[in-house]
Amino acid sequence: MSMIKAHHLAVSYGHGEAALKVVKDVSFEVQKGETFGLVGESGCGKSTILGALAGRNKQWTGTLEIDGEEIGQKRTRSQLAKQQLVFQDPFGSIHPRHTIGRTLLEPLEIHGKDRRQERIEKVLTDVGLPLNFRYRYPHQLSGGQRQRVAIARALILEPKILLLDEPTSALDVSIQAEILNLLKDLREREQLTYILVSHDLAVVAHLCDRVAIMQSGGFVEVATRQQLLENTVEHPYTRILMDGSRGYVSERRKSDSAALPA
């Protein structure tokens, strides 16, 4: 069963003459429980696609289907709760003057949920934070802890989909692995569907089943994780990205990898 269906999705910014089409006609489907990656260089439109899926960017055309329901430009509360966004910067995504408990209570109040304290305790446990953290302010937390809070806030409405906008790029390398493993556990436990935006192919290969490689607003290729790991991607642009993500590689090894069968 497919959780997300995008058909001829195009997203633009600005109005009239000055309108800028950032995403040009992309189509994809994401199955339930799958993790779909979007990679590409800065400005290629990957975060814009995420914004359109989250409901942040309302200037899109084409058809969008989430959890079997066609979505319009305006969404109802329950449609908004189906997918939640996790932001790149954990320092800017949590209200600096709200305690963590207040931050987590807010969505429950908006959606009129019951058993609020119970839900807050559950979600804090789920993301591996001690319960007394709910009385703390964000400035008392480290970057990794804040990103756990951001994930907890996204999870508290029990969404089906998490939209991850470079969730680890602002973090320390050692913390990055922790957050990625947390995301992996959560996906299995809560049967979540992920869309992960990243420019780090190592992160993508760790988490994603399929990856769309983007260049200037369109998909150049949709590769499977197997293809990434075995380095059997087809498009030359994907190869350039893969070489780039490997960092410095000596000339000999480069020629070795190029010699692999395509």
């Binding site: 989250a54 409901g55 942040r56 509360r77 908004l80 709760a81 939640q84 966004l85 932001f87 910067d89 800017g92 995504s93 949590i94 209200h95 600096p96 003057r97 709200h98 807010e106 969505p107 908006i110 959606h111 951001a150 806030r153 409405l157």
Partner: peptide, 26 residues
């Protein structure tokens, strides 16, 4: 356009709630 205001919008918070709960304390 801070991320935490956008997060509240994406969770369905209305204008009044954002002004009173998020903007006032700041």
């Amino acid at each position: 356009h801070a991320d935490f205001v956008i997060a509240a919008e994406l969770q369905g918070a209305g204008t009044g709630r954002i002004l009173l709960r998020h903007i006032v304390p700041l």
